[in-house]
Amino acid sequence: MSRKTHAVLLGLAMVCANQATANNEMSYEAYIDSPKRIKCMYGYVTAKTGNFSAAKAIFEDCVARWNDVYSLIWLAQMYENGSGVEPDLAKAAALLKQGAEQADEVSYVGLARYHWGVALAEGRGVQADPQHAREWLQRAAADGQSEASEYLKQMDAAAKTESAL
């Protein structure tokens, strides 16, 4: 995700936080049961401030209500890094796969495809599968994820080095 996208999302979340302040709903927990989808973006700020239990609850609710790809990615990263949860690479990989399999027009699907492709390439939480990793990374690159294109170049360079040995 680009820095500009992060800045926009952070700005949106801060607007929500300012609205919560005006309504005396300052806690992150106030967003857990909110029926408004903007809360999925607010989960990012919640995680970044270290309130992982509230962030996890927000992301899980966004996944349950809307199968929100952004929330799937962030929840996967929490499980991958052990941020407020027990590390669980298999659960992280399953969440990334769920996000990657969304329709092409869904927001953030290219990013999910990139992360799923990397998980397959590196065998993080799943059996390593370079062929399927390449397919998902190519889809992510076609979705505009420059990181996927770079990863594919690294895979090609590593393959050339291995074949030269």
Rank of each mutant, 00 (worst) to 15 (best):
M1P: 15
M1S: 09
M1V: 13
S2V: 06
S2A: 09
R3G: 12
T5V: 14
H6T: 12
L9M: 14
L12T: 15
L12I: 15
M14K: 14
M14D: 15
V15N: 14
A17C: 13
A17W: 10
N18K: 13
Q19D: 13
A20F: 06
A20L: 10
T21S: 09
A22F: 06
A22M: 12
N24H: 14
N24V: 06
E25Y: 01
M26T: 14
M26E: 14
S27R: 13
Y28E: 03
I32C: 10
I32N: 07
P35R: 01
Y44K: 04
V45F: 01
V45M: 01
T46A: 06
K48P: 00
T49D: 13
T49P: 00
G50R: 07
F52T: 04
K56Q: 04
K56D: 01
A57P: 01
D61F: 03
C62M: 04
C62R: 10
A64S: 15
A64F: 05
R65A: 09
N67W: 03
D68Y: 07
D68K: 05
V69H: 04
Y70A: 02
Y70S: 08
S71H: 10
L75S: 08
A76V: 12
Q77R: 13
M78S: 09
M78W: 07
E80C: 04
G82N: 03
G84H: 11
G84R: 07
E86I: 11
P87N: 07
D88I: 02
D88W: 01
L89V: 00
A90F: 09
G99M: 09
A100D: 03
A103T: 12
E105M: 02
V106L: 05
S107Q: 10
S107C: 12
L111C: 08
L111K: 02
A112I: 02
R113P: 10
Y114K: 01
H115Y: 07
H115G: 03
W116F: 08
G117P: 01
V118K: 01
A119H: 00
A121V: 07
G123N: 00
G125H: 00
V126E: 05
Q127Y: 03
A128W: 07
D129V: 02
H132T: 14
A133E: 09
R134E: 03
E135A: 05
E135G: 05
A140W: 06
G144L: 11
G144Q: 09
A148K: 03
S149V: 00
E150L: 05
E150K: 02
Y151K: 03
Y151A: 06
L152I: 07
L152V: 06
K153Y: 04
M155K: 08
A159T: 05
K160F: 01
K160W: 10
T161Y: 04
T161W: 05
S163V: 11
L165N: 15
